[in-house]
């Protein structure tokens, strides 16, 4: 039982990290960035490349090296997100929603198959694995590395929350999310704020990618597809556009999946997750913490 809870929370923290980027981008330009999951995949591969270039990593140094790689990767995927927005999305901001969504699908496609062309279709084995000691916590088997990853995820999320709620930058972001035109009139550089939002969201996805690589040990070019869907589900559960809600949604989805898998069997895990998504969208489309939209019949 507590094992299921722990597994759920662990996977959920990945979902939450990726979902945050989804949610932030949606909050600010109302776009479902289909390519977001692929930035997570890109992060995993960037980490893979950097670690490969660094040569062998001794087990003792694994953690510090991994953290360094994490920061580097976040920079790279963050920039990738910025470029994506600049090249593909910016010019379509006033265009019909459908055009923007199709563009996002195109971007996702290009990233996935671009990576396949570059790195091959076969899964790659991550060059570093954190071999941790196993601890018993409340009857659940927890490895040290899992704890570390969750800690990193939590630190990143707290940092993001502080940034959005406390800083000038964050205030500008919230202003743009609320009303881009009014924000522009107040002297906020809307383009720059949107760029930074993409940077932050994509950086978080990249971090999650590296962590997933180190945890699961294997990465491939399609790894972002499912997690993109899961992240969207998490964002919807929590309330898309709402940062604490999205974190909660990620953890909740992790837990639901963990229990769902236990009851139904692993092969039904993804079906179960989408079932939850559809249920939420039908019953409470604004999510647990999302604000109610004006009631239109």
């Amino acid at each position: 039982m507590s094992q299921l809870v722990w597994n759920g929370l662990f996977v959920g923290s990945f979902y939450a990290l990726v979902a945050l980027g989804y949610s932030m981008v949606y909050g600010i330009i109302k776009l479902l960035n289909f390519a977001h999951g692929d930035l997570y995949m890109l992060g995993a591969f960037v980490g893979f490349a950097v670690l490969g270039a660094a040569g062998g990593v001794s087990a003792a140094m694994a953690l510090p090296v991994l953290l360094l790689v994490l920061v580097l990767t976040m920079g790279v995927t963050g920039l990738a997100g910025v470029v994506l927005e600049r090249v593909a999305y910016r010019r379509l901001r006033g265009a019909p929603r459908l055009s923007l969504l199709i563009t996002a699908v195109g971007a996702s496609f290009a990233l996935e198959y671009g990576m396949r062309a570059g790195a091959g279709a076969d899964p790659r084995v991550y060059p570093v694995r954190l071999s941790g000691t196993t601890l018993e916590v409340l009857g659940a088997r927890v490895t040290l590395q899992q704890l570390t990853l969750v800690a990193v995820a939590v630190i990143l999320m707290i940092g993001l929350n502080l940034l959005v709620n406390r800083s000038r930058e964050g205030r500008a972001m919230r202003a743009v999310a609320l009303d881009p035109r009014a924000a522009a009139l107040m002297g906020i550089d809307v383009d720059a704020i949107i760029s930074r939002t993409f940077f932050l969201g994509s950086a978080l996805a990249g971090a999650a990618g590296v962590m997933a690589g180190a945890h699961y040990g294997k990465i491939d070019f399609m790894m972002g597809f499912l997690i993109g869907l899961k992240a969207f589900t998490a964002a919807v559960i929590g309330g898309i556009g709402n940062i604490p809600g999205t974190m909660l949604g990620g953890l909740l989805l992790g837990l639901l999946e963990s229990f769902g898998t236990f009851w139904l069997g692993g092969e039904w895990r993804d079906v179960f997750a989408f079932g939850v998504l559809i249920l939420f969208l039908t019953v409470r489309p604004t999510g647990l913490l999302g604000e109610r939209v004006t009631e239109r019949v």
Binding site: L32, L98, F274, T282
Partner: peptide
């Protein structure tokens, strides 16, 4: 039935999910 009441962009991703559900179900 459940998806067409939703905003258009939600619809997109839910249909994506349904596509996966059908495929996974056929596999299982």
């Amino acid at each position: 039935a459940p998806t067409l009441r939703l905003r258009s962009d939600y619809l997109a991703i839910v249909t994506l999910g349904f596509g996966e559900i059908i495929r996974v179900t056929a596999t299982n």
